[in-house]
């Protein structure tokens, strides 16, 4: 897969954003037709979705909770994509981050929180980063395209996690159920305002700011942008491309790993095989529909989180089958993907 040619189109103006909003609107209209065909009232359905997600305090907090892993896995795609690397491995990197974090939380359980938490987060970052770096190395040496290797390694990572939670790490107190023992309190990421919104949100926001500042304000970022503009020219001007491939893959994977840290340490409190309902893949989609734009990523992650949380409401209040959520999400994506490109 000649990834060097498939780059994320970048939006250039607020007008593009406005157009994207219009496209999402179109998708909602199409889905409204689907709802009407199923004999449901689309306006009531949309009102219920919004009133239980954005305008409700708890609902909004849960939307934020859902957005954390989506934003981090989307960044994991967006950062390497700056030099045309395609990372479909967010899911595997998330699992590897969770695995490393769990190891830290279990092995250093005696440490106080202010030492243990940074360690858990750092190891999570390392886990995801190293997993992505495997693909980075293979790409830097020109052996295997990172598109292929990250996709394949997703499955390997999930199976490795299964191996540990079904085997050596299984909690003897959990009826032989495949999960590790609960983390000690010191290994749990703090949450805010009595909701499940956790430190991961701040980490994600900081990551966004750093991403933005590094790209626009530093020499290093300028080099990356130069490479993003023209790989061949960058090589001729003496930039060590291989090192950038490795570093950007490592950082991207590390951020996906942090998404895994959030899920095990803040949400679940232990490692289980059903850690992620496909955050890595949704993050990939988010990054692409946002064109790698930081604001676009936040907005698209918000939209995906609202659709997922709103899906519960469609089922509860409108007796629609759960599968309808997949259809809504797909329609949304179809419309956005099929948009006319902004030159």
């Amino acid at each position: 897969m000649a990834s060097a040619h498939a780059r994320i189109p970048r939006h250039s103006s607020a007008r593009a954003m406005l157009r994207a909003t219009g496209l999402f609107g179109l998708a909602f209209v199409i889905f409204a037709a689907v709802l009407l065909a199923a004999g449901k009232d689309p306006i009531r359905a949309y009102r219920d979705i919004l009133s239980s997600t954005l305008v409700d305090r708890y609902g909004f907090s849960e939307v934020l909770v859902k957005m954390i892993p989506l934003m981090l896995t989307a960044l994991a795609v967006a950062i390497p994509s700056r030099i045309w690397l395609i990372n479909i491995g967010g899911e595997g990197q998330l699992y590897m981050g969770a695995l490393f974090a769990t190891w830290a939380a279990t092995y250093f359980a005696a440490l106080p929180a202010w030492e243990l938490l940074p360690l858990v987060a750092a190891l999570g970052f390392l886990g995801g980063g190293l997993w992505a770096a495997i693909s980075g190395v293979m790409r830097a040496y020109g052996w295997v395209s990172e598109t292929i290797s990250t996709l394949l390694l997703n499955y390997v990572a999930i199976l490795i996690v299964s191996f540990f939670v079904f085997g050596p790490w299984k909690d003897p107190e959990s009826a032989n159920y495949p999960q590790t023992a609960e983390f000690v309190a010191a290994a749990r990421l703090p949450t805010f305002f009595g909701t499940r919104v956790h430190l991961g949100l701040l980490i994600a926001l900081v990551a966004f700011i750093v991403y933005h500042v590094v790209l626009t304000r530093t020499r290093w970022g300028l080099e990356i942008r130069a490479m993003g503009g023209n790989m061949e020219a960058a090589r001729r001007s003496g930039i060590a491309i291989g090192r950038y491939v490795l570093v950007l893959m490592f950082i991207g994977g590390g951020l996906a790993g942090l998404a895994g840290v959030g899920e095990v340490s803040a949400i679940q409190g232990r490692l289980r095989p059903s850690l992620s309902p496909g955050y890595g893949y949704t993050g990939f989609l988010i990054s692409w529909i946002a064109g790698g734009n930081p604001y676009g990523i936040v907005a698209s992650a918000l939209l995906m989180a609202v659709i997922t949380a709103g899906g519960d409401v469609l089922q509860m209040a409108h007796r629609l089958p759960g599968s309808v959520v997949n259809i809504l999400m797909a329609l949304m994506l179809f419309v956005v993907l099929a948009r006319r490109r902004v030159p």
Partner: peptide
């Protein structure tokens, strides 16, 4: 009865229960 199917055993389960209670 309010019923939700295909709820993953991930972060989602808690949200679904809370929403049910809200309703």
């Amino acid at each position: 009865v309010i019923e939700v199917e295909n709820v993953p055993e991930s972060a989602d389960a808690e949200r679904v229960m809370e929403t049910m209670i809200q309703r």
